[in-house]
């Protein structure tokens, strides 16, 4: 198994931490993992992305131009990374703020209304975990028990009381993933 993922959105949306929690989940499952952020002077409001790779074998390049999955949280990232999904791959996006929707017909496209759900439930900070839940529903590459262990490893001790809320958000995301265009 190897899964090559790009997660992209605005700084402050929890893009990097979503990637880290997923990577830690993989690590708890005994997988090889890499987490490579686009780092720079950009902060909240700018664009942020991270390449996460989970694999049963030693990982070669942490830098990629083609991905099995793109998790997209804003228009700029959709414009930039839609073309980078491998044929037959997965594009998962939150339609919030998206005016130009994906057009490719050779990939599986799903949407997750995570921003809307986070606003509705009042749990704005678990927005990224709703998205992650949708991904894990579509590609169950990390078991839930290992995600919980990964959360415990990623979050500082003082935030461990938030683990159940984060796990609930992951489960909510699993329910909310919706197909947009699925290839046969």
């Amino acid at each position: 198994m190897i899964e090559e993922i790009i997660i992209a959105g605005f700084g402050g949306q929890g893009v990097l931490s979503m990637g880290k929690i997923l990577a830690y989940g993989g690590l708890m499952q005994g997988q090889e993992v890499s987490w490579m952020p686009s780092y720079g002077p950009e902060m909240r409001g700018g664009t942020a992305n991270v390449t996460v790779i989970l694999s049963d074998e030693r990982i070669s390049s942490p830098i990629l131009s083609q991905f099995d999955t793109a998790i997209i949280l804003n228009q700029q990232s959709l414009d930039k990374f839609e073309k980078s999904v491998k044929p037959g791959g997965l594009l998962l996006y939150d339609p919030n703020g998206i005016t130009r929707h994906p057009v490719r017909t050779d990939i599986n496209i799903y949407r997750i209304e995570a921003a809307a759900e986070a606003a509705r439930s009042g749990m704005v900070k678990t927005f990224n975990m709703i998205v992650l839940g949708a991904f894990l529903k579509l590609k169950p590459i990390v078991k839930m028990e290992n995600m919980e262990k990964g959360l415990a490893k990623s979050l500082p001790l003082r935030h461990h009381k938030l683990i159940p809320a984060n796990m609930d958000a992951i489960r909510k995301g699993m329910e909310l993933a919706e197909p947009v265009a699925v290839i046969a």
Partner: peptide, 10 residues
């Protein structure tokens, strides 16, 4: 370099 410094791995 910045890649190896900034990336996370096991």
């Amino acid at each position: 370099d910045g890649v190896i410094g900034q990336m996370m791995e096991k």
